[in-house]
Amino acid sequence: MVLETILYLIAYPPLWQVLILGFVGALLVAMVAIWFERKAAARVQRRIGPYWASPRLGGFMIIVADMIRYVTQQVIIPTTVDKIAFLLTPVAVLVVTILPLAFIPLSPHELYWPVASMEYSLLIALALTTLPPLLTVVLGWASSNKFSVIGSLRESYVITAYELVAVLAILAPAASTLSFNIVYIVEAQQPVKWLAILNPLAFLAAFLAVLMSTSAFPFEIPESEHEVVAGPYTEYSGILYALNMGGGYIRRFIYAIIIALVFLGGWAPYTPGLDPFTGFIIPSLIVLVKASIVVLVMSFLRAVYGRYRLDQALDAAWRLALPLALLGLGWSIILAYMNLI
């Protein structure tokens, strides 16, 4: 009885989804993603990568050590910056980045949704994911540094091009299932009618667009080291820099969760039960694992590709990714018309 109450308490959606999965889970995934990125790149590059911090864990503790360093490092606030914006934006970025989780259902049961209705959840979640880049532009502007301004300018170019593709491609499942309800989309994919298989074009477009718009490593055009030092984050140090950097990883993770839900079948092939454990915690963990795999594949690409030039990236967005997304959308409509899903 007591145990059940505790379970229900943990499964209280704002607590489980936003606090535990959102903050702790996202933090953990960000840590694992950074670690995996370093380890995977190291393997491809014939190195060992992080090792001595904890040889048995494959050097995972180096990420913890890094975090401790970021937290305890002095935060330098240059005199030329716009102080309020400079200090508040990194925090706002993190909050806004986590926000889409409030509209993402990780269980088919209404009881475990963070908000009462999931009718337009996909639209709202996607709309919220487009917010953080705007704050990145603010961030660069507040820094009052040439490299920051160039970096945030690039960020704004890249998001203009790729957010559109990302939104279009991720909306393709909505077109094929005729619903913006994520729960409905996931249920439609049960058990293995995953849209990534039925509609690989849209999936590829979504993957590419997410990679680009979250400036994942090989495509970190806004913060590419060799021209603009660290882009919008040049003036940041210590915990504020960690918030910015972690924000990027968490944003990619949120996108990955959406992709896992709408393309990779969400909690499929598992059929959730009714009680908190089988109805909420297990399905959400399945989604988490699928999202992690998406993030890890993105991390692997770091080792193989170089960096696109800004104009080439934009060119690729309009000429390659956008048609791909439109084709995916068209294919979704055909899927819907032929009742394939």
Binding site: A41, V44, Q45, H226, G306
Partner: peptide, 16 residues
């Protein structure tokens, strides 16, 4: 060259 183009693998391979 590799590291200038953001291709860290080329950097590590060439140096290795």
């Amino acid at each position: 060259f590799g590291v200038f183009l953001g291709h860290s693998t080329m950097y590590m391979w060439a140096f290795g």
